[in-house]
Every structure is written in C-alpha cells, then in structure tokens.
C-alpha cells in the first residue's frame, strides 16, 4: 500500500518534470519510480499508513490558507520593525519555553514550522514536547502557544 502510493506520487512528479509521453521516456520513468519506491517507501510514510492519512492531508490543505495569511502578517510586522528608524527601542527579544500537548510527530513538525513562519517567533529547539522559542517582541512572546496550536490540533489530530 505504502509502495503503491509512493509509486503513484513519484510517477506524477516524473511526468510533470519530463513532459514527454513517448514509450521510451515513460518506460524509463516507470522503471526508476519502481526502483525508488521499492527501496525507500518507508521514508515517506513513517510506520504504517493508517486510515487517518487522507484525513490528515485534507486537514493540512485546509490549514494552508490560514498559514499563508499569517506569513503575510509576519512579513508586514518584520517590515515595520526593519524600516523603523529607532529599531532597537521597539524590539525586545527573549527566549520562551513552553510545553505542547500535540501527540504525533507530523503535528509537532507542522507546529514547529508554523511557529517559524508566523509573526515574530522562531523555533530554536524541540525536545520531546518542550519547545524553545525565540520571540522578537513581547507581544509575540505572549501569543504563544495560543490559537495556532488549537488549529494544528484540529487539522491533524481531529479524530482523537
């Protein structure tokens, strides 16, 4: 099952990259996709692909527009700080530690990436369930973990 899904995804990628439909190129693509998916299908699905996989992907796609909106806000805020003439007075960096309640690896990964991409915070270290986050301003530090963790949880751990 995992091999099949990996093979289909890689074949789509091959066709996208090569764009030729004659027999020679297609055969080459099928053979190489088969080899790669036989050798390394467990990189793509860590463990067994359960039934939750499709649901997770759907949740991820619904989560992406909100993430893009947050990235836009983040860049506006960075632009404000960068272009401020007395920059050192409005920034107040600090390290914040907190614990998360997210369970699976995928949701933790998504959460760490989202923290890095959203206003004023980057993930410094992630050990087990303790995140160390470097915040650029006090306002950004206070907003953690907050709304984002709830959104990630509802997108990726909905059935729990």
């Amino acid at each position: 099952m995992a091999r099949l899904v990996t093979f289909i995804i890689m074949l789509i990628f091959w066709v996208l990259l090569s764009g030729m439909f004659d027999a020679f190129h297609l055969t080459l693509g099928v053979v190489s996709c088969l080899l790669v998916s036989l050798a390394s299908h467990d990189f793509m699905f860590y463990g067994r692909p359960g039934k939750a996989w499709g649901k997770n992907m759907l949740g991820l796609f619904l989560y992406l527009p909100w993430l893009f909106y947050q990235i836009f806000l983040a860049s506006i805020e960075i632009a404000y700080i960068v272009l401020h003439p007395r920059m050192l007075e409005i920034m107040d960096p600090r390290l914040v530690r907190f614990r998360t309640s997210l369970k699976t690896n995928l949701s933790r990964f998504t959460f760490a990436q989202s923290i890095t991409l959203t206003p004023g915070t980057i993930t410094v270290n992630m050990a087990d369930n303790e995140f160390t986050v470097y915040a650029l301003t006090k306002k950004a530090a206070d907003s953690l973990p907050g709304e984002m963790e709830a959104r990630v949880a509802s997108a990726l751990e909905g059935e729990k």
Partner: peptide, 25 residues
C-alpha cells in the same frame, strides 16, 4: 526588506527572522 533586515539587525537570531520569513513570502 529581508536584505535590509539582515544588514541592520543587531544579533544573529533576529537576522534569521528577517531571512526566514521575508524570503518565503
């Protein structure tokens, strides 16, 4: 914005802010 941020920010971690976010957007 990302370039000016990299040049202006005082320490390493805040430079990463400017680099990481602005470049993605």
């Amino acid at each position: 914005i990302g370039t000016i941020g990299i040049l202006r920010f005082p320490d390493f971690y805040s430079r990463l802010h400017a680099a990481g976010k602005c470049d993605v957007l």
